[in-house]
Amino acid sequence: MKKGIHPDYRPVVFRDPSAGFAFLTRSTVTGDKTVEWEDGHVYPVVDVDVSAASHPFYTGRAHTLDTTGRVERFNQRYGTRLPSDSKPS
């Protein structure tokens, strides 16, 4: 790698304030705020809107659509097309 052209890759805390969830990882992202982590060191913190702790898919609060009724209504309205027995002459 060339020297001086890549951003710093350092420990950063990502925090989801709505869920009270935070994790420490390495990243190149910068943050203005800092936080003292469990190990006693101070790290930059980045607040995120959605994380695995608050996303409906991962928390089990996701809603699934009932597509069975939609398919039945479509078939009822338009019917099913059967192949024709007659061949064009």
Rank of each mutant, 00 (worst) to 15 (best):
K2F: 15
D39R: 00
H6M: 14
D49Y: 05
L24V: 13
M1T: 14
K33R: 13
K2G: 13
G60S: 05
F57A: 14
E72T: 12
S18V: 14
D85A: 12
V29H: 05
H55R: 09
Y43H: 10
S18H: 06
V13S: 00
L82N: 06
S84A: 09
P44T: 08
Y43A: 08
Y9M: 08
D66M: 01
A19K: 04
V71W: 02
R77W: 02
V35N: 00
Y78A: 03
R73K: 14
I5H: 06
S86N: 10
Y58V: 11
N75G: 01
G60A: 04
M1E: 11
T30P: 01
L24K: 11
T28V: 15
G40V: 08
T64F: 13
A19S: 10
E36K: 15
S86K: 10
L65T: 10
L82V: 10
T68C: 06
T64V: 12
A62F: 14
L24S: 11
S86L: 10
V48E: 07
E72R: 13
S89P: 15
K3S: 13
K33P: 00
F23C: 08
R26D: 01
T68V: 14
V45M: 01
W37Y: 03
R70Y: 04
K2W: 15
R15N: 03
L65N: 11
V35I: 15
K2N: 14
S84H: 10
T59D: 09
G31D: 07
S86F: 07
G60K: 04
K87W: 11
P44E: 09
E38Q: 11
S51Y: 01
A62W: 13
P44K: 03
H63D: 14
T59P: 05
T25Y: 00
K87L: 14
T64Y: 11
A62L: 14
S86P: 02
